[in-house]
């Protein structure tokens, strides 16, 4: 079997914030009735965290659950167990109207970290990223310049961003430009 590689092979950029493609991350799209007991139980069993509320992400290390839409969850897990976890989800949801698909290789994942990480993101997204409005634990799907993206905060100074793999270079370039040395706005 061929060796899996991430979109940009862990490319990094240092400016007013550090931009890093974090490499391979297991991601499973889970669609179904998020209020259903068996779906909640199956998702929590695989991710090892509790169900997130609306617009929230529950993440611990490489594992987590993110609320994508009223009928969609993003299940995060280490890349090497993603196939096993997808099968486990499908097994647990047999007979229910639900769908679990391994989308790890269709996505790229970035981290933006540093004291002005909020600014770097705020330059690109039509989202209120002030500390009062967006904090760790929250999750947001939005637009970064011209492409769809989703992000959450790992801690007070770190964003984790998920985008489509086909636009990984574009997103990396966007983040690098937004993090150019000397471009701090000092808004937050």
């Amino acid at each position: 079997m061929s060796e899996p590689v991430s979109a940009l092979n862990k490319a990094g950029f240092d400016g007013i914030a550090h931009v890093q493609e974090i490499g391979l991350q297991g991601m499973i799209t889970l669609r179904g009735n998020l209020a259903a007991k068996d779906l909640k139980a199956a998702a929590s069993a695989v991710a090892g965290v509790a169900m997130p509320g609306v617009n929230e992400a529950n993440c611990e290390g490489e594992r987590g659950l993110c609320w994508m839409s009223p009928d969609e969850l993003l299940v995060l897990c280490p890349y090497d167990v993603v196939q096993a976890n997808t099968a486990q989800l499908q097994q647990a949801l047999t007979g229910t109207h639900a769908l679990a698909v391994n989308v790890s290789d269709a996505r790229a994942v970035f981290r933006v970290s540093g004291p002005v990480a909020r600014e770097v993101m705020a330059k690109l997204c039509p989202v209120d990223l002030s500390p009062a409005a967006f904090s760790p634990g929250m999750f947001r799907r939005t637009r970064m310049a011209q492409v769809p993206a989703a992000f959450w905060m790992v801690d007070e100074q770190t964003f984790q961003i998920v985008c489509f793999r086909s636009v990984a270079q574009y997103v990396f370039d966007l983040l690098s430009v937004a993090a150019q040395p000397g471009s701090a706005v000092n808004l937050f």
Partner: peptide, 12 residues
């Protein structure tokens, strides 16, 4: 009305 996000026109 589904996710409660105040979405900018460009997100819609």
């Amino acid at each position: 009305p589904y996710c409660g996000v105040a979405a900018d026109e460009t997100e819609l």
